[in-house]
Design a protein around this nucleic acid. Sequence first.
DNA 1: TCTGGGGTCCTAGGACCC
DNA 2: TCTGGGGTCCTAGGACCC
Length: 408
Amino acid sequence: MKERIIFHIDVNNAFLSWSAILYLKDGYKKDIREIPAVIGGSEKSRHGIVLAKSIPAKKKGVVTAEPIYQAKKKCKTLEVYPPDYRWYYKKSYELMNYLKQYSPLIEQYSVDECFLDMSGMDYIYKDYIKLAHDIKDEIKEKFGYTVNIGIGNNKLCAKMASDFEKPNKVHTLFKDEIAKKMWPLPVGDLFMVGKQSTKLLNSIGIKTIYDLAKYDEKKLKKHFKNQTEHLKNSALGIDESKVTPRSNITTSISITETLPYDIDDQDKLKEILFRQTEEVTRQLREQKQYTKTVAIIYKNSNFINYSAQAKLPNPTDNTKTIYKKVIDIFNKSYKEDPIRLIGVRLAELSKTKKQQLSLFEEDEDIKDTEIQKTVDKINKKFGAASVMPASLKVIGRSRNKKQFKDRK
DNA sequence: TCTGGGGTCCTAGGACCC
DNA sequence: TCTGGGGTCCTAGGACCC
C-alpha cells in the first residue's frame, strides 16, 4: 500500500495575528505582532491569562496560559489586547473554506488548526513540499497572516512537524526522518504527553522520545496500563487514525464562567445557572441535538474542582426540563463553599430523541420547545434580551424581593 | 489585579442484577 | 456454609488538547 500524505496546518499565534489584522484594517497604526503584546482576558474580572502572544513577547519569556500579571513581570512594556471570538470564528471559517479546495478530506482540529489528507493526489500535485509552500504563501498573500505546515505519513507526524520551527515554515516528518527529527526531542514534546505523563516518564528515566521508543513495553505497562500501546506507538511515529471531516457532531456542549468575585449565595448561583442553561440549550437546539446527561461544574475559591451529573429519562432540548434537572443536581451537589467558577454541561448528545413518553408529556415538551425556538429566532434577529422567558423575570423579581428583605 | 473556556477521552469504583 | 464473580450502567474526577 502506498504511504499516506497528511498535511497539518496551524495558524501562527492565531488570536494575536487575527486581532492584528482586524486592528490594521480599522486603521490602528501598530502591528501588534511586531511589539511585545498578548491577547488576554480582563484581570479585573479574573479572566486574566495569556491566550496568545507575539514573537517579541515570547522572546521575553511570556508563555501561553500564564497570568497576565506574571507576564507583565517578565516584560515591562507588554501590551494586552482583549480577545474577539466572533472575529476569530470568522477567520477560522474563511481559512477552512479556502483549504477545502486542496482536498475534500479536511478535518478541523481546533479553531486555528486542521489536517488535510493529500494521499493519492500526486496526479494533481506533483510535489507535495512545493504545494505546501504555495499554500502557505498564498494564505499570507490572501489573508495577511502566516501559518506553519507539517507534512507526514500520518496525522501524528504531520502535527509534530508543524510544531518544529515557527513561524511561516513548512516541515516534513516522514517515516525515514523520525529517528533524526523526532527522537532527540524531550518526551514532553510528544503529542498527548502532558505534564503529568512527562513527570512519570522522567521519573523512570525516560527523557527523550527516543528513550520512550526503546523502553521495555512490559515495564512501561506497569505505569501506563492500557495507554502503553498508544504511547509507544506515538514514540515510534505510528498512527493509523484517519482524517475524518466532522460535520458539527459534538459529544458535549458546555458553558463555564469564572465569576468576577466568589459567590456562595445560592439564589445568585441559581440565577447564573439559569442563564447558562438558556445559552447552552440554545446551542443545543441550534445544532439540532438532544441531550441525555446534564452536569454542573464547580471550582471553588481554593481552586478545587468538583462536578455532579445526572441522566434525564429521555433525550430533550427543552430548557425548562433541563433547568429543572440542573436545580436538582445543584441542590444535591453544592457544598456551600464560595464559588469561583460555575458551569453547565450537556453530554450524551444525539440527533434524534428516541423516547417513550406519555402522550401528554411529549405534547408539553414539544409545545414548549417550539416556543423556545421562536424565542431563539427573535433573539438572534433583535439581540439577546429582546424576549425574555417569564421564568427569568420571576427569578429577577425574587432576587429583588430578597434584596429588599436584606435591606430591612 | 494571580491562576480562562471549550472540548475529548479514560478510569476507578459503586450499585445492581443474575 | 463464611462471603463468588461476571456484566452493565452510572458517576466523579482527571489528563490532555487548543
